[in-house]
Nucleic acid binder design. Structure first.
Lengths: 193, 193
DNA sequence: TACAGCATGTAAGCAGTTACATGATTCT
DNA sequence: AGAATCATGTAACTGCTTACATGCTGTA
């Protein structure tokens, strides 16, 4: 999935500025499985505008750059839908420095291992929070205004449920295994220093 | 984590050729949370060799290019350990085209949604298989020969357990929610065609 | 006072993917 | 016969991150 399709997808949920789109990928429902930075979003939006797939209206703001609120054109919508149908989905990929580092736990101080695990936990908790908020957004939540009631969209609901289940399983596993893991590390250290 | 550290990390588990290192990232324990392609591994190995962090012995093979079996130098080992200590782990990131596509389930044919979910499931099953094999490798399993018994390494065990828990949670969620999700999609379709 | 958030945009630089080049062997 | 596996290597291309440029508002 290239950044252009990602932007079109974000706009399917409602009009938004580049800044708001990034928020969707950072805190919203997409944050679980995609991400995009401003440095790639702005150029993508500009290009999509040139191709007639999006338009924008500049909202004037005092003492700030105009806020450009983008929306899909009918053609943009059609193009995106076509992309959805045609895309042969690429491999999933998960990257985690923390888990890589923890693979070498036997070479690291136990305190560092514990810190890494805790860091991993707290990140998962943040993610869980994001997913829950995205599933049942509070009024004036992040992202564009909800033109449709998102609770009527089955997709995000299913995906959100999946994300929730995964985060919970992760936190649960750590909860149950962290101490015995650290104890084992300490014993090994004591056994052959 | 840059590709160079990833290669050093792979070699911590034992000597290996570039081709074998890729296998570790494709099927071995690392496949769960990192990946690397041959086009990046070979140049990295060459560079590490120039820097004195790895050496290799060329194993002659009939009618094939010599197999270059790399091993860490003492300095390579030290460098990697230093890296482990110093690295401030980057954000985890998970990318999934399938989940992105499924976010728009309400715009897709139900059959396509089902196919996407099934594809997702089967990929998770493959991953689960890899993780299990990596945790309790069979004799002559993938990757370099096990110079140490991996069952004595707590890190991979913990990580493997985590990966297993996550895969299981995913498969479990899909098992329990797929049908009702598809039914809901079909009902919506029938309700307002 | 300093930092975080809002808000857009450009451009350099780099890391990694993909494709190309080559070729024998073994499995289906 | 064709595909996959083994095996290494180079190079173009792409797409993304990071940093820079600018500047007000609100909070700690």
């Amino acid at each position: 999935m290239d950044i252009r399709s990602l932007c079109l997808g974000a706009l399917m949920a409602g009009d938004a500025s580049g800044y708001e789109i990034r928020k969707m990928f950072e805190e919203g429902i997409f944050s679980y499985f995609q991400m995009a930075s401003l440095g790639s979003i702005y150029p993508a939006l500009t290009k999509l505008g040139q191709e007639g797939l999006v338009t924008f209206t500049a909202q004037e703001q005092e003492n700030r750059p105009d806020k450009k609120v983008y929306s899909l054109t009918p053609e943009g919508r059609r193009t995106f839908l076509r992309t959805l149908f045609q895309t042969r989905p690429g491999e999933d990929r998960y990257r985690s420095d923390i888990l890589f580092l923890l693979s070498f736990a036997h070479e690291l101080p136990v305190e560092l291992c514990e810190a890494l695990i805790d860091e991993y936990s707290s990140r998962q908790e943040v993610m869980l929070e994001h997913i829950r908020e995205a599933k049942c957004p509070t009024k004036s939540g992040p992202g564009p205004e909800n033109t449709e009631n998102p609770c009527q969209m089955a997709g995000p609901d299913f995906i959100g449920g999946l994300g929730e289940a995964v985060c919970k399983a992760t936190l649960d596993f750590i909860d149950k295994n962290k101490e015995s893991f650290l104890t084992e590390l300490r014993n090994r250290r004591a056994g052959r220093p």
